[in-house]
Design a protein around this nucleic acid. Structure first.
Length: 341
DNA sequence: TGCCTGCCGCCTGTAGTGAG
DNA sequence: CTCACTACAGGCGGCAGGCA
């Protein structure tokens, strides 16, 4: 008899990767190998840890495939789901790399396990809110020479893709704060804050004006933060769960793009550009062997366990599904939080 | 009035079952 | 063996009531 277990985000990321690679139900040897692999990790091999069973991994794949199918999702891209309704193919024509110091112990050649791959957020020109970038579809250069990328926002359909100025409106994703990180939120800090209004609930840049510290209880941080939103200068008190901190600066990002899929005018070689504040860079990548000529949805290669969704949010948030952007529900930025279920 | 706590409902993830 | 579906447990947020 096997008890009910809950897979960690690292495990889910690993299984998602298998699912993405195979795009089919894994065979028994693969599942068995994956089971052994998971059980070899510190999460499962330590004292008092509950090892996962083959049947549990198998069931997970079954359920995952079924739920994806039911929701009309495509196989996940490196631990991140593509936007709902994404029907295009998704060769790895683009990928985002950060040029952080090489402290990575790349596991078994898995590109997603090192620090070189990052998650981005982009500011929608439509409403000025920040959304997680789920996939970069294409890129181009504007008349002014600025780099622009066409993105899918996480949780939105392909019909809502937008062109984003890389320099001005693309950056590393903000990180939701865990309870113990409230002490790091100080007056004057730039944060990403979840603003809930009757008509919409979106993430906007904001600055911390005041911090009201309170004793934490079983539910975690009870502190409150007075913030002023940059876009409308409104002020409000928010709990920590609505606060996402900006990652440390001085991180360079490379968006590696397959030239064969980019627009003709984007045929440039390794162009570096500075952005705010994380210096996002777009560079052509190696030729794609796929040989497709139409524009394709290309997933970001993102680090499943490197950012909020899999580290911070692991303890405090659930998984998120897509929501229409117009509704602007909490799910619109699901990777950061799940408010107002 | 604000804080604390418990209850309730919803949602999600995992397990179980039957059909093909 | 996979797929489709359901059952169930747990987490989370909202809300109301009690209390200082």
């Amino acid at each position: 008899m096997t008890g009910r277990i809950r897979f960690t985000h690292a495990e889910v990321a690993k299984m998602l990767e298998v699912l993405r690679d195979l795009n089919a139900m894994p065979k028994r040897p693969i599942i068995q190998g994956l089971t052994d692999d998971l059980n070899a990790s510190p999460d499962r091999s330590g004292d008092g840890q509950v090892p996962v069973q083959y049947s549990q991994v198998h069931t997970w794949f079954q359920n995952r495939r079924y739920t994806q199918k039911r929701r009309g999702e495509r196989p996940p891209a490196q631990g991140k789901m593509l936007p709902t309704g994404a029907e295009a193919q998704h060769p790895a024509s683009y990928r985002v790399q950060s040029s952080c110091p090489s402290n990575s112990e790349s596991q078994s050649g898995n590109a997603s396990s090192d620090c070189g791959l990052v998650q981005l957020e982009a500011k929608s020109p439509t409403n000025g809110a920040w959304f997680d970038v789920a996939a970069i579809l294409s890129y181009r250069f504007s008349e002014t020479g600025d780099q622009e990328i066409q993105v899918w926002f996480s949780g939105f359909g392909a019909e809502e893709e937008e062109w984003i100025n890389v320099c001005k409106s693309v950056r590393l994703r903000s990180l939701p704060c865990i309870d113990t990180e409230c002490v790091g939120v100080l007056p004057g800090d730039l944060i990403l804050c979840y603003q809930v209004r009757k008509e919409q609930a979106l993430y906007f840049d904001a600055h911390v004006l005041e911090v009201e510290r309170r004793t934490h209880d079983l539910r975690g941080c009870r502190c409150s933060f007075l913030v002023r939103y940059d876009h409308d200068h409104s002020e409000e008190m928010v709990p920590l769960r609505k606060v996402c901190r900006r990652p440390s600066a001085d991180v360079k990002i490379d968006i590696v793009i397959d030239d064969s899929l980019a627009e003709p005018k984007a045929q440039k070689s390794h162009k570096r550009m500075d952005t705010n504040p994380d210096e996002v860079t777009v560079v052509p990548g190696p030729p794609n062997q796929g040989g497709r000529s139409d524009k394709l949805a290309a997933p970001l290669l993102i680090t499943p366990d490197s950012t909020h969704r899999d580290s911070v949010a692991d303890e405090q948030m659930g998984d998120i599904e897509a929501a229409p952007k117009g509704e602007a529900t909490s799910k619109a930025h699901g990777d950061k939080m799940n408010v107002g279920a």
